[in-house]
Design a protein around this nucleic acid. Structure first.
Lengths: 317, 317
DNA sequence: CCCGCTGCATAGCCGATGCCTATGAACATG
DNA sequence: CATGTTCATAGGCATCGGCTATGCAGCGGG
């Protein structure tokens, strides 16, 4: 781009110029743009000096454009219109009337938490496009770092090799055991101990699900390696397998609740298992305005009010 | 300073903004636009304040556009490009690389003087469009006043009801008598007296030609009313009639010279008839740059060939 | 015929603003 | 921990745009 010489030449001057061209009268044009007549005259003169050509024929009481002025007028109008458009475009982004959020979330969050939240957000800001990327926390972290996501809902703790992300704990969800309603309830006295899982047929998610890592880790902590009747598959598939009586599965309570009535939900015995869902974004760039608004909404503050407020403080990732 | 729509927002700032967006680096952008880094930072900040949105994500060594910046960039580029275009457009007019001259001229001038002059002018300024309007002096004066012409070559004196026009005498041209080479020469001793016209068959132009008024007035001054064998028709038609032997005609010498060899040219006896061709334009508005240049060429450099008093043969009569 | 009115240009002053240099702060690196 | 890089901030200076007052050129009314 050739920014050869933008030089002095002000939007003001173009505004004044157009005003005079329209009013064909300096004094009235000056009133029009709310400036004194001498100031306007000076700026017109300055513009003429800058461009090296007279723009108006100053015949007493009959101001007309010269050919140079005639040539300038349409461009001046367009420039001013563009400036106005620029202002409005930016304003629309600021006012959340336009925009885009690229949101990453883990499958269980997508299934459990997101629909309601996004419904509310979209209701408030119908002009914002919502792009959801479903994936394991590991993938989401990578996408955040790449700049492919503005925001992500993922599971803490973050994978070791996480780039600089800012995370805010959002909620903790209990994990529960789901089993087919047509089979005997797992566990003892209405609760399932981790140790019980050694003897239960387990249906397990594919690699990449945080739930898988969490469950396996819990079993190992109890001193056994879990074995799976069926493994691999997304959330819906796993629930389907369980519903079919192939085994039991450990899933977030939120998911279990929504899973339907032919599935039995059994809590895990104390201390049980829980996991922390957090909101994350890159530390080095502020998310777009719309994403910040969604963030605020997720963190529980009233959508209109300023952020910060209640939730847990940010923590490095 | 309230300025509702345009507000403070400078071309400089947009230039700086685009530079930073392209360099993704404040310091280098500052060098690019030849300004100190703090100045550039300040202006960017001022622009952000003005627009009410951050334009860049300032991550150390990784400056990126925010969504607001992304929205602004194309408009900023276009505005700067338009400003550049405006500058060049006006410059082209000033440098006579583009433009238009609306030139009025009487038929005899169109036939005699103009072709050579316009050839020269067009050779020097090929980008200037030349719009010629042929008409009687009366019409030309009216068109000048309406602003439909920039410049006119007409015959002095001007009609009585002339608006404020500035005229400069350009040249005086002798009128001569043309007759068919195949008929006896009119007049006596190689010259025609006005009085002789009473007994010669006259071919006369249509109403509106200055030549008509001039010739008729001369006859009346000699005490007779001329009668016409043929009348009405433009210059070429009149010459054709004369060539066909229908009569003789009084025409500018310049025209007679170019009329061809089957026409005889006889001077009028002293004092003869002559008329003054002048260049005229409105007094209240300066003609466009290109028209002024043509004016200069006409006044300053009398083109070679059958011009002015110094043409072929004595200009006196 | 002079006078006042209209309408743009000019003069002089003042506050605002941009640019500069110097310096600070945050982060990366050896 | 010292150092370098990079953007932000501070203070001084000159410029510049805006204002009021005034000048000057036509034009119309008394």
């Amino acid at each position: 781009m050739q920014r050869g010489s933008v030089g002095p030449m002000h939007f003001q001057q173009l505004t004044y110029f157009v005003a005079v061209a329209e009013a064909r009268h300096f004094t009235r044009a000056a009133e029009e743009v709310h400036v004194s007549q001498p100031s306007l005259s000076q700026q017109i003169k300055a513009l003429e000096r800058e461009l090296g050509a007279e723009l108006f024929s100053r015949a007493r009481g009959n101001i007309t454009l010269t050919d140079a002025g005639e040539a300038l007028l349409p461009l001046a109008r367009r420039i001013l219109a563009d400036a106005d458009t620029a202002r409005h475009e930016v304003q629309e982004l600021v006012q959340l009337r336009r925009g885009r959020i690229r949101l990453g979330a883990t499958p269980s969050v997508c299934t459990g938490l997101l629909p309601e939240v996004l419904r509310t957000f979209h209701g408030t800001h119908p002009g914002i496009r919502l792009l959801i990327e479903e994936g394991g926390s590991h993938d989401l972290v990578r996408e955040l770092a790449r700049g492919a996501l503005d925001l992500a809902l993922l599971v803490l703790p973050l994978p070791a090799a996480s780039p600089a992300l800012t995370t805010v704990e959002l909620l903790q969800e209990d994990l529960v055991v789901v089993s087919s309603a047509g089979r005997p309830a797992p566990g003892r006295r209405g609760a399932v101990h981790i140790a019980d899982l050694e003897n239960e047929p387990l249906v397990m998610f594919r690699h990449g699900y945080d739930l898988r890592e969490l469950t396996v880790a819990a079993c190992r902590a109890e001193g056994f390696e879990p074995s799976f009747t069926v493994e691999g598959g997304e959330m819906d598939a796993v629930l389907g397998f369980v519903r079919a009586g192939l085994g039991i599965a450990v899933v977030p309570r939120m998911v279990a609740v929504r899973a339907g009535q032919d599935l039995r939900t059994t809590p895990l015995a104390s201390p049980g298992l829980r996991r922390t869902i957090a909101l994350a974004h890159r530390s080095d760039v502020e998310p777009p305005r719309a994403a910040r608004e969604l963030q605020r909404m997720l963190l529980g503050a009233p959508p209109a009010g300023p952020a910060a407020g209640g939730g847990p403080g940010p923590s490095g990732g």
